[in-house]
């Protein structure tokens, strides 16, 4: 464990908590893409299948459990408890356009052709593009609530910090995982446009609006 990865995990945890609290306290999931949340729940499910078979540390197992519980709780709140506030008219990105190509790629490009490894690879590739429905929804509505933009900033920062972690581990341990690195770079690049808007607008107290 290094400081970059710890900060990355905490940023990821912060993002998940921010979103869950936003939905729970405002009793509304307006402006949030349910499809992205379903994809994130799928990412954690396919990545943490070794939760009970491959013990790394208490921290590792605890965080995996928290991520799984919170992501399913968010999906539950959005599609059941506060379903009336779910903006399905603007959350129209076709998930199959992501899941099918990612599933195919996971079969073609992986470290080991075993079910657990292919599912892990699938989760890595899927996580890289899982935010697209959310970014697409914001581009359609042309704006995002400030709390949602904080959520996105924390979520985007997590994988950016992981990239620094991978550079650090490469130089200190000689460890690298090409699949995670390439997918992590794609994932972070997708946030660049948002990062620019967040830093130039939200940090100056303005509403996050996309140029129409």
């Amino acid at each position: 464990m290094n400081i970059f990865r710890l900060l990355g995990d905490l940023s990821h945890l912060l993002a998940i908590i921010i979103l869950l609290l936003k939905i729970w306290r405002t009793r509304s999931c307006a402006g949030v893409s349910g499809k992205s949340q379903i994809l994130f729940a799928l990412v954690f499910t396919t990545r943490y299948l070794d939760l009970f078979t491959n013990f790394i540390s208490m921290y590792n197992s605890a965080m995996k459990l928290i991520y799984l519980v919170c992501s399913y709780a968010t999906v539950f709140l959005m599609y059941f408890k506060f379903k009336a506030t779910y903006d399905s008219n603007h959350d129209t990105f076709r998930m199959e356009f992501l899941v099918v190509p990612v599933g195919g790629l996971a079969f073609l490009v992986n470290h080991d052709f075993t079910p657990l490894e292919i599912l892990w690879t699938f989760s890595i590739y899927l996580e890289a593009v899982a935010i697209l429905p959310q970014l697409f929804m914001i581009s359609k509505t042309g704006e995002a609530e400030t709390i949602t933009s904080h959520y996105l900033f924390a979520l985007g920062s997590y994988r950016a910090l992981y990239i620094v972690n991978w550079v650090f581990r490469f130089y200190t341990e000689g460890f690298f995982d090409l699949i995670a690195i390439v997918a992590g770079c794609v994932q972070t690049i997708l946030y660049c446009d948002f990062f620019y808007l967040y830093i130039t607008k939200v940090l100056k107290g303005k509403q996050l609006t996309l140029p129409a």
């Binding site: 790394i56 590792n60 490009v109 470290h111 080991d112 972690n165 690298f176 090409l178």
Partner: peptide, 10 residues
């Protein structure tokens, strides 16, 4: 792909 797998990351 070259395998440098530890799966110790979240």
């Amino acid at each position: 792909l070259p395998q440098m797998q530890k799966k110790d990351e979240l």
